[in-house]
Design a protein around this nucleic acid. Structure first.
Lengths: 342, 342
DNA sequence: CCTTTCTTTGCAATCGTTTTCGATAGATTA
DNA sequence: TAATCTATCGAAAACGATTGCAAAGAAAGG
């Protein structure tokens, strides 16, 4: 029952007038007489006429559609960003096509080409980890399509960017521990060849130095997953009696550390205060509830979409690009209240 | 620098032949001489010609695009479903437009109309909680667009559906507790006017009766959030000495219950075994790790998309609809090992 | 050498809409 | 009465691609 939707031609035929008149009548063109307008508009209403967006797009080369390319959807930060993008898109009348690369470079290339082929008005990208060649991004620009990177940006392409400030987030987290009275703070770190690992560790060190505390590599333990914490349980516990605070590179690591401490007789936060780095909604579930810095995925998505719209609708200057940096925000809960018993 | 992409007409003009010949040459039509084909194809390759998907869609009334309408993106289950949808879509050459209603009926109506206007080939919907009028779904069908519901289905529209079996999931969870030796099992339940609340409680009761245990409303406590567990701490603890198992309607409730038990001197799972119902990745983070039943969002998304493609490509029979039911799977962890000390 | 057949190509219509440029009235003005 | 103006509408091209049909030329058969 492939029913064919009503077109302007259909209306014209039934009403015995030309398609051009119908078109003009529907959009209140001054050339059309009030009688004809009335006739056309009420009839269109009656048959529930809806313009064919494809035809409009083809003619105007404007699709009111944008593309989103991300490594994975099932990731709290990314889905939060998408949500922010989608809400702005909706409010401005854009549709969003979503493409997930699964960290696959080839798929990223194909996804971008598909978006170009569909003539999207703009593209939002968070790069795959395995992308080391950038001509597919340049290809987008060469097709005259604005592109905005978020979170996993591409340095090689000069365009708008929106990122979270990992350095500052880590600094805020560490300074918070210091303000709670911590003097010797351990850092559970991610690999230093990853940007987040490097930046968060440097933020941690920066805060320590700012307060005349030494940034000692002996207090930096390389573990950034729940499993790796358990694997390094002995190392962590051997240091535990010497420390009064832990800053972990992410929340699940922080929570695992708390659990390791607890089952070895330490009290969190009485003996040791703990702060994480927000990567999901799990901080609330932890016991004690975890103090953490939260990456503002929703506003990052909104900002990226707004920047993109600026270039699509040319309210922004063509060749002037901007990098927006969002600093994570401290969410203080129980785990960092050094000295307090829970 | 709104650069205009190369079209078939451009190629025709440069090569001094007609657009029709170019079109046929590009798709190896037998009518075209080998020489011409070679000429056109190498030239198209050289200038990186790409067909305009809009023009193709307009002509063929096939967009190779589907729409996804969901209440919210930032929800582990939904983002997992989207991921499953997107992976199938990608493998079959479809693009996915994503629309988030934020549980808003009006927005659902507008989103669906926008998808119709854009002539998507099919639509996947999980209804908003506030939708009690269904003519916008019927409108989709009237436009000849296949629609598949998942999770939050609409009974009023006869079409394909994909759902998770809450009743059976709850039954499996409860039977697991019984198999671990539990005799008196508490249920933390969601409101009974919600389908998941009703179905999961009934599954719980069914398992009890199957094993000649009584399904006693005294052991059913109405709380389905972390906060409500803490609010009912006294009630739960007053019953705790009398029970040896808890089945909670979701994971965060289960985890909160474990924490309440622990700080009141109970050992989980030694004294009381606990099982949750999967709504995210938090079960792994809990202490002890939470046994739960996991809703298979990814395969639900895949199944929904496959059903939709069946109707789009008419490999499925037009008027015969199917309801696929996926039973959650028990993921056994530590929290349910009654009698064991951790 | 003429007719037939086959190969290869182009014309034009189509998808649904917008928009430029006229065109045809009737009304107004000189 | 003739000329100009205004109001209202339609024809046709355009967006980029596909495709049925016609036509031109070449090859083949008689």
């Amino acid at each position: 029952m492939k029913s064919h939707p009503i077109t302007i031609k259909d209306i014209a035929r039934v009403l015995g007038i030309s398609p051009s008149t119908v078109s003009r009548a529907l959009k209140d063109h001054p050339d059309i007489s009030p009688k004809t307008k009335q006739l056309v508009q009420t009839f269109a209403e009656k048959v529930n006429y809806r313009p064919n967006a494809l035809a409009l797009s083809l003619r105007s080369s404007k699709t009111n559609t944008i593309g989103i390319v991300i490594p994975e959807i099932v990731h709290h930060f990314f889905s939060t960003v998408i949500s922010g993008i989608e809400d702005i898109a909706y409010s401005k009348g854009y549709n969003a096509i979503i493409c997930q690369t699964n960290e696959n470079y080839q798929r990223e290339v194909i996804d971008l080409q598909a978006l170009i082929d569909n003539r999207v008005d703009g593209i939002l990208v968070s790069m795959s980890k395995n992308t080391h060649e950038f001509s597919h991004f340049q290809n987008v620009r060469d097709n005259g399509i604005p592109i905005v990177f978020f979170d996993r940006i591409c340095e090689a392409i000069s365009t708008d960017r929106v990122i979270a400030d990992d350095f500052e987030g880590a600094r805020i987290a560490t300074k918070h521990l210091i303000s709670k009275g911590c003097k010797k703070i351990m850092h559970l770190s991610a690999p230093q060849h990853l940007l987040i690992g490097k930046n968060r560790k440097e933020g941690y060190c920066s805060a320590l130095k700012e307060h005349q505390l030494q940034c000692n590599d002996q207090l930096v333990v390389k573990c950034d997953t729940r499993e790796s914490v358990f694997a390094k349980e002995d190392e962590i516990i051997s240091l535990a009696s010497d420390i009064d605070g832990i800053f972990a590179v992410n929340d699940s690591t922080a929570i695992a550390a708390m659990q390791v401490l607890q089952r070895n007789g330490y009290n969190v936060p009485k003996d040791i205060a703990v702060v994480g780095f927000g990567d999901g909604p799990i901080a609330d579930i932890a016991y004690p509830p975890l103090t953490t810095v939260e990456q503002k995925g929703y506003v990052i998505g909104q900002a990226a979409m707004n920047l993109l719209i600026g270039h699509i609708e040319e309210t922004a200057i063509e060749s002037e690009f901007e990098t927006k940096i969002f600093t994570p925000e401290l969410v203080e809960r129980t785990s960092s209240q050094l000295g307090k018993t829970i």
